[in-house]
């Protein structure tokens, strides 16, 4: 009667179960999506007139005529933070006792931990993809051609997984979904201590220094390079490296904290 009970089958079953949970709470998906779309429309409305086509020939022409291309990466980075839901999903299972039920069964502890991260990854792709789609509709046009969209999405995915790892580590450490939720406050410094509205050269004083140490800066700059400037390989490399290092660091933290959580007391 009993058949395949491999790690991958377990991971697939647990991921499917968690997708069902997400689908059953569609409203929980909206806030981050709305905020990301809001950034796109409001910043374009407020700043597009100044830094868009009319800035041509002035020192403020950093969007090179298309402000959507310039501001879209900010919205994409914001959407990619939806990966932070992974920690909340995991802690909800810990709080409700579902985690303990799975621990009492002969299934892989790692499948239990990785399932919410899988769902976080799907969420990042879905939300970033939707914002990208909106961007395309309202005029985004990458300088490197359509492959630019894939590059932007791939950086967003790695960056989003970084936030997934961070939220899992914070959630397991705090032991409560409120704790995991509160940990997402990192969103604000990540977004706003970066060259969000203007290029880094236009920042000054402490903000310029903070932006230099903020990995989000390099992620946004890499996305902007393909959207606005063309193939700037060194900038692109720095973007992937920043996102990759951030993801590696937080996923390591997530693994360490999850290992502790699954150990017997």
């Amino acid at each position: 009667m009993k058949s395949n009970r491999s790690f991958l089958v377990q991971l697939q079953i647990l991921t499917k179960r968690m997708v069902l949970r997400v689908v059953r709470r569609p409203l929980a998906e909206l806030p981050n999506l709305i905020i990301s779309a809001f950034f796109l429309f409001v910043y374009d409305g407020a700043l597009g007139g100044v830094f868009g086509g009319t800035a041509s020939g002035t020192p403020f022409d950093f969007a090179k005529g298309n402000f959507i291309n310039f501001i879209l990466p900010v919205s994409i980075v914001s959407a990619s933070l939806s990966g932070a839901a992974s920690g909340i999903y995991l802690v909800e299972d810990i709080e409700s006792g579902v985690f303990k039920r799975y621990q009492s069964m002969p299934i892989s502890r790692w499948a239990i931990i990785l399932a919410p991260m899988n769902v976080g990854a799907l969420r990042v792709l879905l939300q970033s993809g939707l914002i990208l789609f909106i961007g395309i509709i309202i005029g985004a046009d990458p300088a490197v051609g359509n492959i630019g969209f894939l590059i932007v999405l791939s950086i967003a995915f790695i960056w989003g997984m970084g936030f997934a790892g961070y939220s899992v580590a914070a959630g397991v450490k705090s032991g409560s979904s409120q704790g995991a939720q509160a940990a997402t406050f990192l969103f604000f410094p990540a977004i706003f201590l970066a060259p969000t509205f203007v290029p880094r050269e236009a920042l000054k004083g402490w903000l310029e220094t903070a932006a230099a140490y903020n990995p989000t800066t390099y992620v946004i700059e890499a996305m902007r390079a393909v959207m606005v400037d063309g193939w700037e390989l060194d900038i692109l490399f720095r973007g992937y490296l920043s996102a990759g290092l951030f993801a590696a660091l937080t996923l390591t933290l997530a693994v360490l904290s999850a290992r502790k959580a699954t150990e017997k007391a």
Partner: peptide, 28 residues
């Protein structure tokens, strides 16, 4: 095991919970 601490996923149906648990125990 049915402990005070083991929880049930309230967002799923009874059928989905049984099915998921059966699959996790290795049933086809």
């Amino acid at each position: 095991v049915a402990l005070q601490d083991t929880g049930i996923d309230n967002l799923l149906t009874g059928r989905e919970l049984f099915f998921t648990t059966c699959r996790l125990w290795g049933y086809s």
